[in-house]
Design a protein around this nucleic acid. Structure first.
Length: 85
DNA sequence: CATTTGACGCCAA
DNA sequence: TTTGGCGCCAAAT
């Protein structure tokens, strides 16, 4: 069974190091380009250590949010070489 | 079952 | 450039 939620988890887990996808990109890869809202909602209510949700950012280039604080997220992205800030 | 919420995206003003 | 508003989807209430 591959519900949209499970697809989102899979897609995010498949994000290679040094790569950052936007919520819209994740939603598109998950099969629903317009479910970007749901993507954020799913990750928010289901923070999982297996899921590098810190690699998912907004289309504007802003980091967006993070369960443990957007500060850590920004630093992680910078360490991976994916952030442009 | 109906309504609200929310880590969003894009356009008009 | 910044602000406000609308659209869209899944989960929570």
């Amino acid at each position: 069974m591959m519900t949209f939620t499970e697809k989102v988890y899979t897609v995010v887990k498949r994000i290679p190091k040094g790569t950052v996808l936007t919520y819209k990109q994740v939603a598109t890869r998950a099969g629903k380009p317009k479910a970007y809202r749901a993507v954020g909602n799913i990750l928010n209510k289901n923070f999982n250590p297996e899921i590098p949700c810190h690699r998912v950012v907004r289309s504007d280039g802003t980091v967006g949010g993070y369960n443990r604080g957007s500060v850590s997220k920004r630093r992680i992205l910078r360490a991976e070489g994916a952030s442009m800030l």
